[in-house]
């Protein structure tokens, strides 16, 4: 059994061919559309590595059926900034030492962009609570919090 449907990903309409209807959005993004930036580490919504935006809502791509995302605007890590021209959040993660193995990083970048859109000056506790759905095994989170705070400060300086 297979289906053909379209997904709206990073501003483009993409055909999904020969898909089984049971495939998760994460699987389709990675294996059918070649968007490997979203990562799978638990496949049950616990780690946040697969975080993507679905109609401006941060979701775990592993918990969403791809066929159920038809008609919604999907933004993945590849849609945040062109390769080689990192966003302020991406650059801050690198500069602050918030990246080690980097497997959790794309999901955390998505979650951080989402957080700072909604709350430009989050308190440290707000950062911890908002990002607590994203697990990092390398950093112990300290440098990530620093990165988020750096972006918040820099954006205030600009505006």
């Amino acid at each position: 059994m297979s289906e053909i449907y379209q997904l709206h990903v990073n501003g483009e309409s993409r055909d999904v061919l020969d898909a089984s209807p049971g495939e998760s959005l994460l699987y389709v993004l990675r294996e059918r559309l070649g968007l490997m930036g979203s990562k799978g580490a638990c496949e049950q919504g616990e780690c946040g590595s697969c975080s993507v935006m679905l109609d401006e809502q941060l979701v775990c791509g592993c918990l969403v059926l791809a066929a159920g995302a038809v008609g919604q605007r999907i933004v993945t890590i590849e849609g945040i900034a062109p390769v080689g021209a990192p966003s302020d959040v991406q650059q801050a993660f690198v500069d602050a030492g918030a990246v080690q193995c980097g497997f959790c990083t794309p999901g955390l970048i998505m979650a951080t962009h989402s957080l700072l859109e909604r709350s430009p000056s989050p308190s440290e506790m707000e950062i911890r609570e908002e990002l607590s759905g994203n697990v990092c095994r390398c950093t112990g989170y300290g440098r990530i919090i620093d990165a988020v705070q750096r972006v918040a400060v820099a954006r205030r300086g600009v505006s």
Binding site: L35, M36, G37, V99, Q100, G102, F103
Partner: peptide
């Protein structure tokens, strides 16, 4: 010096290839 990682930007952009990618 506190130099940043050479693979940091690709990792933050999702373009770094892990073995699973």
């Amino acid at each position: 010096d506190s130099v940043a990682r050479p693979d940091g930007v690709p990792k933050a952009q999702g373009s770094y290839q892990f073995s699973g990618d």
